[in-house]
Computed example of a mutant assay.
Amino acid sequence: MSITSKYYGRTKAGAEIYQYTLENANGMKVCVIEYGCIVTNVWVPDNGGVLRDVVLGYRELADYEAGTASLGSFVGRYANRIEKAQFTLNGKTYYLEPNDGANHLHGTFGRLTYQGSIVDDSLVLTGRSPDGDDGFPGNMDITVTYKLTDDNALVMDYTAVTDAPTIINLTNHTYFNLDGCDSGDVLHQELWLDADRFTEGNAETCPTGRILPVRGTPMDFTKPKAIGRDMDCGDEQLRMASGYDHNFVLNKDGGMLALGAIAKSPVSGIRMEMYTTQPGVQLYTGNFLANDGVPGKNGKPHTKHQGFCLETQHFPCTPSHPEFPSVTLVPDEEYHETTVYQFKTE
């Protein structure tokens, strides 16, 4: 496995950004930039041995700065939504930036500049979120590690520490299209989720607090099915979100790394297995990609449902629902989560 780097561009603020390319013995390649720890490219062999770039992205750094869809981004301090852009911790209420209507969504980690370095066979990116960033308390030091194995697994490992009690929820927002990033929509691609339940969403896709069974609903991916099979069935949850934008509760114990999802394309034969230590995964089907306004890698606008995300996470709006798995991080503790995307062919 090799890792090389090259100059990628300069941010509007003047920071020099480098791109790192991880390549394994099979010819699989993953490209990452220091801006937002963004995964810009994932080249995977299909069932004919042809390399396909299976993630959505832009042409250059300025596009990543201008884009609004979080393509390939590392997301935090709090992935997904915090209802009414506020939370209470230890009796104190913190007010966040309302950047998704009245709610707070994802945060600024995808727009920070990180310091990349090659450590053994991994790419290690480090950054700091200062006290008060987006309204969150505590200085937070973050380490993002990307590793590509010779069995075509992209390992994403996140650690963080804080000097004051805070909340945290980190994920990666890569959009996958297993036929290639320029191949059209993903509605025919198949998905299996090891999730018997999901968190019901309200009109703003914030959890109502009810955790419902997927059985007998369009949310049921416990048997593989095309992503778009039930999308136009008239279900209220899908209508409100214009597709899937829902948190699924994974059938797993504690924080152990376990298989949570399998996606595959009947066209390219590419199969992607997702493993995670996290308790949930947000399935997002690119419902508003057409609103981004920044052209993709081929110079053309992205289209609705051109990619899907499997955002491993703790649950949205957990501060409003203390019965959900805890997202609190305190000094002298380390946040640590791992997600793996492994590629195969059929």
Rank of each mutant, 00 (worst) to 15 (best):
residue 254 G to K: 10
residue 305 H to M: 02
residue 206 C to W: 01
residue 225 K to M: 12
residue 223 K to P: 00
residue 175 Y to D: 04
residue 270 I to H: 04
residue 97 E to Y: 06
residue 119 V to F: 00
residue 16 E to R: 13
residue 169 N to E: 06
residue 278 Q to I: 03
residue 136 F to H: 05
residue 87 F to L: 03
residue 18 Y to V: 00
residue 312 T to C: 14
residue 281 V to F: 06
residue 124 V to T: 12
residue 118 I to K: 09
residue 227 I to P: 00
residue 35 Y to R: 11
residue 116 G to R: 04
residue 41 N to Y: 03
residue 303 T to H: 12
residue 190 E to R: 15
residue 177 N to R: 12
residue 185 D to T: 12
residue 47 N to A: 13
residue 196 D to E: 14
residue 138 G to E: 08
residue 290 A to T: 01
residue 76 G to P: 01
residue 324 F to S: 03
residue 215 R to Y: 12
residue 308 F to R: 05
residue 85 A to S: 11
residue 305 H to D: 07
residue 72 G to I: 04
residue 259 L to E: 12
residue 225 K to Y: 08
residue 200 E to R: 13
residue 16 E to A: 11
residue 249 V to Q: 01
residue 288 F to A: 13
residue 316 P to I: 01
residue 102 A to K: 12
residue 229 R to M: 09
residue 223 K to T: 15
residue 57 G to D: 08
residue 75 V to F: 03
residue 318 T to I: 01
residue 253 D to M: 03
residue 140 M to A: 02
residue 246 H to D: 11
residue 333 E to T: 06
residue 268 S to R: 08
residue 50 V to H: 12
residue 41 N to T: 09
residue 146 Y to A: 02
residue 157 D to V: 04
residue 152 N to P: 05
residue 77 R to G: 08
residue 26 N to T: 12
residue 218 P to C: 12
residue 234 G to W: 05
residue 84 K to G: 05
residue 317 C to W: 01
residue 72 G to Q: 10
residue 262 I to R: 15
residue 310 L to D: 00
residue 301 P to N: 07
residue 180 G to T: 06
residue 122 S to C: 14
residue 286 G to E: 03
residue 49 G to H: 07
residue 135 G to R: 03
residue 234 G to A: 04
residue 56 L to P: 02
residue 51 L to F: 12
residue 82 I to Q: 05
residue 96 L to R: 04
residue 35 Y to N: 02
residue 239 R to W: 00
residue 256 M to K: 15
residue 201 G to M: 06
residue 272 M to C: 13
residue 220 D to S: 09
residue 78 Y to H: 14
residue 106 H to L: 09
residue 93 T to D: 02
residue 343 F to D: 01
residue 317 C to S: 14
residue 70 S to H: 13
residue 234 G to K: 11
residue 248 F to A: 03
residue 67 G to Q: 15
residue 43 W to Y: 14
residue 330 V to W: 04
residue 277 T to N: 03
residue 235 D to V: 01
residue 284 Y to W: 12
residue 75 V to K: 06
residue 132 G to W: 06
residue 235 D to R: 01
residue 50 V to A: 14
residue 82 I to D: 02
residue 96 L to W: 03
residue 271 R to Y: 02
residue 123 L to D: 07
residue 105 L to E: 00
residue 98 P to Y: 09
residue 252 K to A: 06
residue 201 G to C: 11
residue 6 K to Q: 14
residue 231 M to Y: 09
residue 39 V to I: 15
residue 240 M to A: 15
residue 298 N to M: 08
residue 80 N to M: 10
residue 201 G to D: 11
residue 72 G to M: 10
residue 58 Y to D: 06
residue 105 L to R: 05
residue 184 G to R: 07
residue 277 T to F: 01
residue 111 R to G: 05
residue 13 A to L: 13
residue 243 G to T: 08
residue 262 I to K: 13
residue 160 A to W: 00
residue 145 T to N: 08
residue 219 M to N: 08
residue 221 F to Q: 10
residue 125 L to D: 01
residue 289 L to K: 10
residue 71 L to A: 15
residue 307 G to P: 00
residue 313 Q to G: 00
residue 227 I to L: 13
residue 71 L to K: 13
residue 11 T to H: 08
residue 326 S to F: 04
residue 38 I to M: 02
residue 186 V to C: 04
residue 44 V to R: 05
residue 129 S to H: 08
residue 185 D to K: 08
residue 117 S to Q: 14
residue 201 G to E: 09
residue 307 G to V: 07
residue 12 K to R: 14
residue 277 T to M: 06
